[in-house]
Write a protein that binds this DNA or RNA. Structure first.
Length: 467
RNA sequence: GGCGGGGUAGCCAAGUGGUAAGGCAGGGCUCUGCAAAAGCCUCAUCCGUCGGUUCGAUUCCGACCCUCGCCUCCA
């Protein structure tokens, strides 16, 4: 089954085929976090999207190398290191750890490699030297090294592969920092920033003098040194299209003379309660904020995966509550199948898997994919209610679910293990019901509810669920 | 100003030149001693507005209205 993806380079949906002549190995690079604070829900949308792409590639049988960089040197980081009188590794380390904890809580598979910018200074310097040698980069009087768009174009390269650029119509310069006036042309961007007093201890020696890497260069250096000069997929948030990704292409192709990336995928941003997220509006959420409201990582993951990645998504608290209910419906169905299958092994029911895969392979139509899941849930529940589902069918359905869950990554509901102090109450209630002492039985039910547990009576006995 | 997305039920969100998936919420019912975030059923004569093409348009074309994003270090 062909996997079709929207490639920003062609602005169209194309069938994916890896560079690997054996059609097996896939190199994928995703722009990772800048570790100066906790990642917010908007950042997470992009990382969950990247995780979905990776899982779908793996589902389609590819052997993926997933690389995600950690940007651990950058203006905001340096500013905070100075303000908090700490050191760079100490400061970035705490947020990197928090990031990886959150990534796991959201059910994302860990990238195979997580290169840090500060650990790739030699590769960055080598890349800049190559660009200087080819005359595409220049050192300005202030000591910084810049990339020259004019020289690059003069070599026959195309600048503006990911979007239509019209420099004359651009409102250029409005946000250019004053410390970059040394550039020959307004469109040029920094490869190496010369050391300034405010940088404190954050600098590295280089052939161009003490300083630190520019933003774009780290991604070019790390991606090509790990995945090769040309690789399959590069993803990131839509805001990175320009200038970050465009500049990555310029630096990389300018240095190697080879095509940089075959497929560029960009995830759209999200709104929160219909508005652009901002701290002053009170609609700025980190994963931790949502966890404090009682939601789990998998519920947040489900919500982030409920809309197509190229559409702006409206993240709402109401939607999150809905995500919780929807997930509970799936969990309930799967739990019942488990009970019936009782460990029987069977091959996956092809109907569900095929429909699901067909939806996702069409440029990640996740909504249609969920549609197949919920139709399956309803069909299964109906059969379950009629008692018409055979043990082998239940096992086969369960196997299919496990297969597609490898892509969805929502895992299993946390097992509601009753705390020991409640066990006595549950047994007491069971006896009370047997003796038709419903007054006592209802009292216990209320008591359990007050402690956050719902008890459900079924012909097979009581079931306890965490509220 | 340039470039690019969107406007589908109370909310979220797919989709198609032939008459609108799915989820949440709501309503009805079933199981139950009573219940249940348990299960089933139901819920858009209609897809921003106005024109055009067509046997037929929400889907194609044009205009307009509204909205969001990018335009040099923001996922």
């Amino acid at each position: 089954m062909a996997l079709n993806l929207f490639n920003t380079l062609s602005r169209s949906v194309q069938t994916f085929a890896p560079l690997d002549p054996h059609g097996l190995k896939v190199g994928m690079y995703c722009c990772g976090p800048t570790v100066y604070d906790y990642a917010h829900i908007g950042n997470w949308r992009t990382f969950v999207f990247a995780d979905l792409v990776r899982r779908l590639l793996e589902f389609n049988g590819y052997q993926v190398t997933h690389v995600m960089n950690i940007t651990d040197v950058e203006d905001k980081i340096i500013k905070r290191v100075r303000e908090q009188a700490t050191t760079l590794p100490l400061f970035t380390g705490q947020y990197e750890t928090a990031f990886l904890d959150d990534l796991r809580a959201l059910g994302c598979r860990e990238p195979h490699q997580k290169p840090r910018a500060t650990e790739h200074i030699p590769q960055i310097i080598a890349l800049i030297e190559k660009l200087l040698a080819r005359g595409i980069a220049y050192q300005a009087p202030d000591g910084s090294v810049y990339f020259s768009i004019d020289k690059y174009r003069g070599c026959g390269y195309l600048y503006g592969q990911l979007l239509k650029l019209n420099f004359d119509e651009m409102r250029a310069g409005e946000r250019v920092k004053s410390d970059e006036y040394a550039k020959e042309s307004i469109a040029d961007f920094a490869l190496w920033k010369t050391r300034v007093p405010e940088d404190g201890s954050v600098y590295w020696p280089s052939p161009f003098g003490d300083g630190r890497p520019g933003w774009h260069i780290e991604c070019s250096a790390m991606s090509t040194s790990i995945l090769g000069d040309t690789f399959d997929l590069h993803l990131g948030g839509e805001d990175l299209v320009f200038p970050h990704h465009e500049d990555e292409i310029a630096q990389s192709e300018g240095a190697t003379g080879k095509p940089f990336v075959k497929f560029w995928l960009h995830g759209a941003h999200l709104l929160v309660e219909g508005k652009k997220m901002s701290k002053s509006l009170g609609n700025y959420f980190t994963l931790r904020d949502l966890q404090a409201k009682g939601y789990t990582g998998r519920e947040v993951r489900y919500l982030l995966l409920s809309a197509h990645y190229r559409e702006t998504f409206n993240f709402t608290l109401e939607g999150l509550a809905g995500a919780k209910s929807a997930l509970a419906r799936i969990d309930e169905c799967v739990a019942k199948l488990r009970e019936l299958a009782a460990g029987t092994v069977a091959s996956p029911d092809a109907e569900l898997v095929t429909a699901f895969q067909a939806a996702l392979n069409e440029d990640l139509n996740i909504s249609a994919a969920w549609g197949t899941v919920f139709e399956w849930v309803r069909r299964t529940n109906r059969a379950l209610a009629e008692n018409s589902l055979l043990v082998a069918e239940a096992a086969s359905a369960l196997a299919a679910w496990e297969k597609i869950n490898a892509v969805l990554g929502i895992g299993l509901a946390a097992e509601a293990e009753a705390p020991p102090e409640l066990t006595a109450l549950i047994i007491e209630r069971q006896n009370a019901r047997k003796n038709k002492d419903f007054k006592r039985s209802d009292e216990i039910r209320d008591q359990l509810k007050a402690q956050g547990w719902v008890i459900e009576d079924s012909p097979k006995g009581q079931r306890l669920k965490k509220l």
